[in-house]
Nucleic acid binder design. Structure first.
Lengths: 154, 154
DNA sequence: AGCTTTCAGTTGTATAGTACAACGGTTCTT
DNA sequence: AAGAACCGTTGTACTATACAACTGAAAGCT
């Protein structure tokens, strides 16, 4: 069964969590770049979100990922150039563009997702289903607490 | 007690883990930049490692964080310019420089660490000690699997 | 010893990702 | 209709990063 946990006091646990999440974050980019060199690859994340939402606006992406709208704008420009995303003017509001993955975008996304998942499957292959389930639960809970407040006191 | 976990099948858990870790990683940088704007701040991580190791070489840092040595070199140059790190030539081997935090470095580190920890404490304040402990354990286990292999098949 | 290989770190160059500020259109509110 | 609020783009700048070429130092082999 679960072998996670060491009976450490609260502060120590928080410290470990902080440290390990940070370590993960640092490595994530380099790793991501290796998984799918084909797609510029933060873009991948945006594309995934667009697909999930079945169409969304640039502003939504910015809000969701805490990115500046200029950043999103440029990422989208890249995705469009690659033919992975399509912008459709919204008839209702001429300011907005509704974003949709193209066919090619969906394909790329599916492949990348499969690769990613395979990599994670491999990495987690020795974990019990119970541990996986709990770990997933904790991560959800952690992230659900709201995007911004890793930031602490400004 | 723990409310993590949903009884989901393996694949779904892995998918959630993948997704949530990625979400975290994406947000981490922006958040980090807010926590301590004073220190260029990946540098912070390197500084922390130097301190922990009680002196180490640039190459060690590169290996540990999967960074190119040029990257580390520049980061260190920055830290040195800020007076946070000191390079001491190794008497045994004139190629290497042993890195040590300066007094100022230790101070900055302590402050930053305190801020970070406070931010995490706040974010995790509603978690039970047991959940914290287990979450920490899972993260350790995940990261311990080795730095490189999020990358999957090259 | 002398030559070659290997290792540590720096520097040149290029790229992604990002932010902030300024701007041009568009829509909403008085 | 005027002003405020909003959506997206573009100009500019900076951090983090990689790769490749290079210098200097140590180690290994004849």
């Amino acid at each position: 069964m679960s072998d996670a946990g060491t009976g450490a006091p609260r502060e120590a646990s928080v410290d470990v969590i902080q440290r390990e999440l940070t370590a993960f974050a640092r490595r994530a980019r380099a790793a991501a770049a290796r998984v799918h060199p084909e797609i510029p690859l933060v873009s991948y994340t945006l594309l995934a979100h667009i697909e999930e939402q079945r169409g969304c606006r640039a502003t939504d992406l910015a809000a969701h990922y805490l990115l500046d709208k200029s950043t999103v704008s440029r990422q989208l420009a890249g995705l469009e150039k690659l033919g992975l995303v399509e912008r459709r003017p919204a008839p209702e509001d001429h300011r907005v563009q509704v974003l949709h993955p193209t066919e090619a975008g969906l394909r790329v996304l599916a492949t990348a997702q499969a690769n990613r998942l395979a990599a994670y499957q491999e990495r987690l292959k020795d974990w019990s289903s119970e541990d996986l389930d709990r770990f997933a639960g904790y991560l959800l809970r952690y992230n659900a607490a709201g995007p911004a407040d890793l930031s602490g006191p400004r």
